[in-house]
Amino acid sequence: MKKITAISGIVLMVLSPCAGVSYAKESNNLIQIKGSDTIVNLSQAWAEEFMKEHPEASLAVTGGGSGTGIAALINGTTDIANASRPIKKKEIDDAQKAGYYPEEFKVAVDALAVIVNPANPVKELTIDQLSGIFTGKITNWNEVGGNNEKILVLSRERNSGTHMYFLENVVRKGHEKGPEEYAPSVLMMPSSEAIINETSQSTSAIGYDGLGYVTPEVKTIAVAKTKEGPFVQPSKETATNHTYPVWRYLYMYTGFKPQGVTKAFIDFALSEKGQKIVEAMGFVSLPKKE
């Protein structure tokens, strides 16, 4: 008798965390959305609107990073994974091994603004110059037409899809597996707000952030692909017509072809109303299909 009590106690202790996880999969009206911190606020806004229209559905949105979201998709603990970068080959392989076939949806466009302190006289930079600054080849503002001042380089942390995107498309100039890497002296900031905060305080700082996060306390830089120009300021218009070079898609992934509430939610996000929310949250809506 006593042994049974003890054993069942242990079994309960061991099982209870698992029970919480599997619960999410069983109920069809409760869907989990997990992943990129870039999209977490946007997903939350979508979820709130969606639940107003579909009171029977309940959506739980959490952040944690694109990698966390996709790992959760592979483990079967989320229905939708948000990502601010496309899924990697290794992740697709892992998903297939676990019996999932990830489906990709582009849900919004994000432009990354390069920002400096408003007191900094530099107005425009090329991708080459940006790459030089972030890899540590260019260390003084006077090398790119600014004051004689050491550059303080700020980046997002490695857990951020924004970090990866900027690495592949600016630091490595579009060569995904290029040899360039952020210099060790680059400060890794834990959040978008931390970059804005530090840039507004330090005249020698340069950083990057999603367009939606930029405040009047910092100045955006016009960016060009080559030194012939054109140098383009980031904005919703220049990101939509792709004249501004530093933009990317934001993604949602599902484990299978979406059904039921999951499908309804993704359709909602892609609808005209959903894309209005994209604009309201400071991102750029998807180009209208021709």
Binding site: K90, D94, S160, G161, H163
Partner: peptide, 21 residues
């Protein structure tokens, strides 16, 4: 000067790493 600690590295990078890499 700025430094990076071991704990902050784990916390900051775990979210985005590819599992099993």
């Amino acid at each position: 000067a700025p430094v990076r600690t071991m704990t902050a590295t784990i916390a900051a990078e775990m979210g985005e790493t590819v599992r099993g890499s």
